[in-house]
Amino acid sequence: MATKTISLDEEAYERLKARKQEGESFSDVVKRLAGERSWKEIAGILDDEEADALEAAIGEGRSRSRERSDRLADEFGEAVGSDERAE
């Protein structure tokens, strides 16, 4: 994995260090504090039934999104075609 070097002033470093938990790298601390969750953190929160329901809801949402995208593309294509015919 690629890495980047950043500079922190003493106060920022001490604040970050104070929030560092045992076994965490500074990268882990930054990710946690930035609000990003890793899959490791959420594993086990849902039981199998809840996970299946969530997966189904996500699938349905994606399907609706694809259908809407296709519909808008068709409508846009028709609108462009009618503009070209009017000229």
Rank of each mutant, 00 (worst) to 15 (best):
A43H: 14
V30C: 04
E24I: 03
Y13R: 02
D47M: 02
A57K: 15
K20P: 00
V80F: 07
L46R: 05
D83A: 15
D70E: 14
A86I: 04
A51M: 05
A34L: 05
E55Q: 10
E11M: 03
L16C: 02
G59A: 11
V30E: 02
I42A: 05
F26C: 01
L16A: 01
S27H: 10
E67A: 15
A79M: 08
E49H: 08
E75M: 10
K4C: 04
K20W: 03
D74H: 12
E14I: 04
R66A: 09
G59M: 04
K20T: 02
D47G: 14
I45C: 06
E49D: 15
A86V: 02
R32H: 03
A34E: 04
Q21V: 00
E14W: 06
R71N: 11
D47W: 05
K40C: 00
E24R: 01
R15K: 14
S82R: 15
T3S: 08
K40W: 09
A34M: 08
R64D: 11
E10S: 08
D47S: 12
R85G: 07
D74A: 14
V29W: 08
A18R: 08
R68N: 13
E24L: 03
E10H: 08
F26V: 00
G35H: 09
G59V: 02
A43I: 07
I42D: 03
